[in-house]
Design a protein around this nucleic acid. Structure first.
Lengths: 181, 181
DNA sequence: ACCTGAACACCGTTCAAGT
DNA sequence: ACCTGAACACCGTTCAAGT
């Protein structure tokens, strides 16, 4: 039983570190957040983090998993909304996580683990988009291509600053192009 | 005259450093290329680079300017080719510069100079794309939106690995969507 | 099992000193 | 004007030692 209790507390501690890391990474980005800073905010020594995570990229991945889970949960709420609305909400959602998505792209070349996380994430979003598109479109092949097209536009909007109006215009244009008969 | 000669040699030295840096940055990316490494390859002390450049990001910008100039010159060659061909060639061109474009995106948040370089670069590419699209399309407003759309797709293709066939498919699909009557 | 102090290797950058 | 050796501050990570 003591063992069980121990294990549970360990989980909690790890969770604490992840929550603190999430806040810092969202706010200041990967490169501007040091392991020492995360540790300090979590109230442990700098190297303690390495008992729970292999390295800094693994911390990033844990944070990403949390952010994405949250985003998916929030998306599920919007079942009966327009496709357009859901896309715009998704962008807002991701944007509120600061530069996290950009950080992923810049860590992909350094860490194989981040790379495979990224690939899996893309497959997931693509799959979701294809489902959406098949409802409105004929061909599966075209839906797959259009899904990629849409994802790249969304990534572009996230990577580059835009006024809300511009963003909506671009999404509208993209959906218009994709959903044109 | 001695002063002139000096000045000329200085330009040459700076150029040497830029060429060496270009090769290294193309091959290994920004983060995996240290100032010490660039200096060693250029045959100078590590801190000598700081006489010619303010910091590492300024070296990156100098390299980017070279790469873009080269790309523009090469593009000018393809005057009478299809729009499709030119776009695909541009992607090849940029891809041959390794992760340089990804590096730009990841440095944008760290360096205001890189940020403004990036903005200017986007304005340029957008302007070129709009000119192209106006030849085939009615409305200026739509051309501007479609130009952004196209650019984001191109960036997506550059940021994510694709087989040549997939890439062509996605570009074809995008152009088809954009140029549809 | 969990945590730490101290150290390591590396990095971009600075500075005082040389020519 | 141009270049350098030496140092600085910071970083992610490791390790031996503590409980």
């Amino acid at each position: 039983m003591a063992r069980n209790k121990r294990h549970l507390e360990s989980k909690v501690k790890k969770e604490e570190i992840e929550l603190v890391a999430m806040e810092l990474l969202k706010e200041k980005g990967y490169d501007n957040t040091s392991m020492a800073e995360i540790a300090r905010s979590a109230g442990v020594a700098a190297n303690t983090i390495y008992w729970y995570f292999e390295n800094k990229d693994d911390v990033l991945i844990a944070v990403l998993d949390r952010v994405v889970s949250q985003a998916i949960a929030d998306m599920a709420t919007l079942h009966e909304q327009t496709f357009r609305t859901r896309v715009l909400t998704l962008i807002d959602q991701i944007e509120s996580s600061g530069s996290l998505m950009t950080d992923v792209h810049s860590r992909v070349n350094h860490s194989p683990k981040v790379q495979s996380w990224h690939e899996q994430f893309h497959r997931m979003v693509e799959h979701l988009s294809v489902s959406e598109l098949i409802n409105a479109e004929v061909c599966l092949d075209e839906a797959q291509l259009d899904a990629k097209l849409l994802i790249y536009v969304i990534e572009g909007l996230l990577a580059h600053p835009h006024k809300l109006h511009e963003r909506e215009q671009i999404i509208d244009q993209t959906l218009k192009r994709i959903l044109a008969k």
